[in-house]
Amino acid sequence: MTGDIRALLSRHLPDYRVRSLRRLGRGLDNTVYEVNDELLVRTSKAADPQTTRQEVARLAAVRELSPLPVPEVVFADEESGVIAYRKLPGEPLSRQLLDDPKRLAEPLGGFLGALHGISPGRMRELAPLDLYPAPTLLQDAELDYRDVEQHVPEAQRPLVERFLRDTPPDEPRTLRFCHNDLGAEHVLVDVRTSSITGVIDWTDAAVTDPAHDFALIYRDLGPEVFELTVSHYEFELDEEDRARVLFYARCALIEDLAYGLSTGPSHYADAALSHIPWTFS
Rank of each mutant, 00 (worst) to 15 (best):
A7N: 14
L8K: 04
R11Q: 14
Y16D: 07
R17I: 14
V18T: 14
L21G: 06
L28G: 13
L40E: 03
A46C: 06
A47K: 02
Q50A: 15
Q54P: 08
E55S: 09
R58Y: 13
R58M: 15
A61R: 14
V62W: 02
E64G: 08
P69R: 10
E78P: 03
S80Y: 02
V82Y: 01
L93E: 01
S94T: 03
L97R: 00
D99Q: 09
R103V: 03
E106I: 08
G110T: 06
L112G: 01
I118H: 01
R122Y: 14
M123F: 10
M123C: 09
A127V: 06
D130E: 15
P135L: 12
P158A: 14
P168F: 08
P172W: 11
T174H: 12
R176K: 15
H179W: 12
A184W: 03
V191M: 00
G198V: 05
G198H: 04
V199M: 04
T203Y: 14
T208I: 08
D209T: 08
F226N: 01
F226C: 07
E227N: 13
S231N: 11
D238L: 09
E240W: 02
A243D: 06
Y248L: 11
E255C: 07
E255V: 04
L261V: 08
G264H: 04
S266C: 04
H267Y: 10
A269P: 02
W278C: 01
W278G: 01
